[in-house]
Design a protein around this nucleic acid. Structure first.
Lengths: 123, 123, 123, 123
DNA sequence: GTGGTCTAGACCACC
DNA sequence: GTGGTCTAGACCACA
């Protein structure tokens, strides 16, 4: 998964979301060292200051921590990561339901459709 | 809902998808007249030919029909629209499941989470 | 039926053929008066001299005759017209067979296909 | 057989028809590689985009398939080609009958004329 | 070098 | 003014 930046919302918010996702999905493992800010910024084609702002917010939330002389690391606290995971999951569910409602499906229909599509599918 | 065009996929495909969505979600009602190609193109900030290509494809699929010199109309055939609705819904479900799996949720967890979030929510 | 002129063959030959066809199919009835050469030429978008050349040839074949002061007329001789009709028909058959052979159909297949398509069709 | 383009009908439709004919009559054998779009366009004296449009339609119908960056190929599926062959043959028969009727021949006369002309003719 | 896509701009038929 | 078609010219991804 790469970086996807759009111009219709604050970039640093998008960076936060995608960074959260990368951590929760294991792209950056618990306790692992992150690439330098400059590298991340270049990878995402954004200004280093913007990337810095995003990382600072993630640090605030406890998802990252900085060792000034060595670099930035992903937290080793599973609980924090799980909290974020749940937050992201809830957002996905909300987003999904919103889209399905727009298509005219009510709760029961969404549920039965999901159940149908889960049957017989390997995990 | 407005138009969102990205540069990483053929524009006409995105136009097709968004047009399908607009029709299925009722932005363009069954049997109603569409704005002229040129207007739609300007609205979406694309070349009229590109919009034309997308509309031609939708016409092939029976979602639209053209009354030459008068304009383009949404089909009045509920069946066709429902078919497209189901197709779009399935895509949404697949997409949703893919994202949830990336977050580390298995089928049962997705299902129970959805059920939980549907409880006590007004339709 | 209007005039169709192509640039890949002598125009006057095409005029002859189409004039024969018009007479045989009754566009210009037996014994009827033809429009003036200039009108015919304009109708077919060709030079009057070219039209003149075609009409002269048809006259030679007895399909037309000229009354100098009154104009040009279609012959009243059914036999002559029937001869031309047969000639044109044979050309059509030959042309048809040639095309069918190019598509890979042999005589028997052509015959059976024709018989099939004639069944149940009102004349 | 070369390309014949007329101005009284959409060019891309004529290209489709003639391409179908070329494939059905073996000018382009099953499974063989077609010349590049640009070459075909130049051969037919049309814009590459117009040729592209025609080929795209033939591809939709399964008569061609594209191996991107390598080229376009005729299908290897005999069934599809035979279907098209039959379609073209039916059109020829219809066209033939129409012309013969215009000349004043009824079904039986057409049939007997064809039978007569087929006798004693080498295949 | 291949097919695919997009834009810009033009003309046509029809009502 | 509507959709339809065509041309010219450009750029892209891929191998």
């Amino acid at each position: 998964m790469s970086w996807e930046i759009r111009t219709d919302r604050p970039i640093y918010l998008q960076l936060i979301e995608q960074m959260e996702l990368k951590i929760c999905s294991g792209v950056y493992a618990l306790g692992s060292k992150l690439p330098p800010v400059r590298d991340l910024a270049q990878e995402a084609s954004v200004n280093p200051n913007t990337m810095q702002k995003a990382l600072a917010k993630l640090e605030e939330d406890g998802l990252l921590y900085t060792n000034r002389t060595i670099g930035r690391f992903v937290t080793e606290d599973v609980n924090i990561v799980n909290q974020v995971k749940n937050k992201l999951a809830k957002e996905q569910v909300q987003d999904f339901l919103k889209k399905m409602r727009k298509l005219g499906f009510d709760n029961n229909e969404v549920l039965s459709m999901l159940e149908t599509m889960l049957e017989g599918v390997e995990q």
